[in-house]
Design a protein around this nucleic acid. Structure first.
Length: 575
RNA sequence: GCCAGGGUAGCUCAGAGGUAGAGCAGGGGACUCAUAAGCCCUUGGUCGGGAGUUCAAUUCUCCCCCCUGGCACCA
């Protein structure tokens, strides 16, 4: 059955070039999107950039250009990187991709304002007060230099604000706040609602946070939740943002949350800025796709997505069944240290892809980390995993298979009408073992959860390739060829056995190509091309369907292509 | 200080009340279709430290140490 699968990533802040962490998240979501397409699901993959805010405003000023020009420049870097890495969000190849969020676009601004208006118009019965949003005056210490209010955290050991903040003055500021905690105007307690939701989802075996070891962390944070969320800034202080609707009064700009998070609604398929007006029966395009799986880093689970976003959705009228799932990934450290500008240990994915190729980078990012946990990035490990798993194991398997087929059969496969020579179960030459490995691997991939799909794919590759390489040694096609050529008593048996071995290897490669296609799309196409399989669908994702990962689809007499090294070994230079 | 995750072979990690596993790296061997790749065999660990429960703990309990997140407090 074709199921809709809506997947999003965090939108990246356009205040600096993308690093390996950005790349990891987008590739992870891309692999999941491709994985679901492979299963036949209908997929919408949304990613994009977060372009507003004070930091951007300041960076643009420093660079001496308009903020829009500044963010356009950085945005182009992200777009180019995703193209290089094969990150195919929905409509990636169009001039105006549906799956690309850019928060300075008019469409998004309208959606943000419509949502704010929706909450503003949700009045306490018989009054003119919004249930969710209220205005409050805050007094505090303001750093003119840093253009921000200071809290006690910023005070030095002597209780005073240090020179980096000066001059500091006391100021009053009016802002809008969004309720997160119980209030009589609200009529219920969002905090309790959220706790119940978290528990209910876990109890139902569908935890709101996956992998689920972070559920407790979120629950903890919710328990301690107090205070409401400031969602505005005076336009005098923050110019680069989305102005509040006029009904709120003049002079306010949205601050972060009602801008960035709302992108998931703005750019959702069947985009419905006024959610309340949607068809409650779930008939609209929007309702068909919602809710999404949000792929995010562990740094923005609490409080942004796990608290603010869920309560925002609740306020906007989304039901419990329409709450998203948060797929939370870990971070790549560098030699045990956190990646940071000050340490100067930022890994540039663009340069990495130029050096080793996009497929090598994708494979490494997917195979050397456990989804949800942190991992240590190492270029040596990237090279090692590429050489061992891709060049030596898979690439060489493809190469030796096609070479033998060319040498002994001019590339033409013979499919035996019956199970070959050696009955399944006896298998002294390993044939049936290989079939079993392929069938089981395909089943494991099909049944895997989003959290470990990438790993199941890796296991599948390993299992089938290893079994195939073993089969070559055990069956020794070169010996069979000699026996066949000798024309002796065993010639006919050797001939059939050699045909069987070659067919098994080709089939294994065909199935591997299908299974690895979410992680290694270009290589999967490369294998299909060399196998000379499905040429009519070249370049299209439709070449790969999980349903085709069954044994025996290559027909009798199939002509294989010419061998070309698919994964040239990466030779370690280094001094 | 509190909550969570983790400390298992050189490296990355799995595991589980009955005295430990995989992959890579290291060592040895046989082969030659192949990208000097592949295959087979193999060295290697007092399972963070200490105490307890048990016939038996690395696996359970308690205490301690270290790493990672989050929260809080002091400044």
């Amino acid at each position: 059955m074709s199921k809709p699968f809506f997947i999003t990533t965090a939108i990246d802040y356009t205040n600096g070039a993308p690093h390996i962490g950005h790349a990891y998240e987008k590739v992870l979501a891309d692999v999941l999107a491709r994985y679901h397409r492979l299963k036949g699901d209908e997929v919408f993959y949304l990613t994009g950039v977060d372009q507003h805010g004070q930091k951007v405003q300041q960076s643009a000023e420093k660079a001496g250009i308009e903020p829009q020009a500044y963010v356009d420049g950085i945005t182009a870097k992200f777009v180019a990187l995703w193209k290089k890495l094969g990150v195919e969000y929905t409509g990636f190849d169009k001039e105006k991709p549906e799956g690309w969020a850019a928060t300075t676009e008019a469409k998004h601004k309208e959606c943000v304002r419509a949502n704010l208006q929706l909450l503003w118009d949700d009045k306490v019965p018989g009054t003119d007060r919004s249930r969710w949003i209220y205005k409050k005056t805050q007094r505090g210490f303001y750093s003119v230099r840093q253009e921000q209010f200071l809290t006690d955290k910023e005070r030095g050991a002597d209780g005073e604000f240090g020179p980096e903040w000066q001059p500091v003055e006391e100021r009053e500021e009016e802002n809008f706040y969004f309720r997160l905690t119980a209030h009589e105007d609200l009529g219920f307690d969002p905090k309790q609602w959220l706790l119940d939701l978290i528990d209910a989802r876990s109890a139902a075996g569908n935890p709101i946070v996956v992998p689920d070891f972070r559920v407790a962390e979120l629950r903890n944070a919710v328990e301690k939740l107090e205070g409401d969320l400031c969602i505005s800034r005076p336009a005098s202080r923050l110019k680069w943002g989305i102005p509040f609707p006029e009904s709120f009064g003049a002079g306010f700009v949205t601050y972060v949350w009602f801008d960035a998070l709302v992108n998931y609604i703005t750019y959702a398929p069947g985009h419905d800025p006024l959610y309340a007006e949607r068809d409650g029966g779930g008939q609209t395009e929007f309702a068909k796709w919602w809710p999404p799986v949000h792929v995010i880093g562990k740094d923005i689970l609490i409080p942004a997505h796990g608290v603010y976003w869920l309560i925002m959705l609740k306020a906007l009228g989304f039901t419990d069944a329409e709450m998203p799932t948060l797929l939370v990934h870990g971070w790549w450290n560098i030699a045990g240290a956190k990646m940071s500008k000050s340490l100067g240990n930022i890994v540039d994915p663009d340069a990495l892809a130029d050096k080793y190729g996009a497929e090598a980078v994708r494979y490494y990012l997917m195979s050397d980390i456990t989804t949800g946990r942190d991992a240590d990035f190492s270029e040596e490990r990237l090279i090692q995993k590429y050489n061992v798993d891709l060049a030596n194991s898979l690439g060489n398997l493809l190469n030796r298979t096609l070479n033998m087929a060319a040498k002994y059969r001019e590339g033409k496969l013979a499919k035996l009408s019956q199970e070959p020579i050696i009955p399944v179960g006896q298998a002294p030459d390993g044939l049936s073992t290989l079939i079993r490995a392929a069938v089981n691997a395909a089943a494991d991939v099909e049944e895997s959860s989003d959290c470990d799909a990438a790993h199941q794919i890796g296991f599948a590759l390993e299992r089938i390739a290893n079994n195939s390489n073993s089969l070559v040694e055990v069956a020794a096609p070169w010996t069979l060829a000699k026996i066949e050529k000798s024309g002796g008593e065993d010639a006919q048996v050797a001939k059939e056995k050699l045909d069987a071995v070659l067919y098994h290897l080709a089939e294994s490669l065909r199935i591997i190509a299908i299974l690895i296609s979410p992680v290694l799309p270009k290589s999967a196409h490369g294998i299909f091309d060399q196998l000379n399989w499905k040429m009519d669908e070249q370049g299209k994702e439709s070449r790969f369907r999980l349903g085709d990962a069954v044994w025996g689809e290559l027909p009798d007499g199939h002509q294989l292509g010419k061998p070309t090294p698919l994964f040239p070994r990466i030779e370690q230079e280094k001094a």
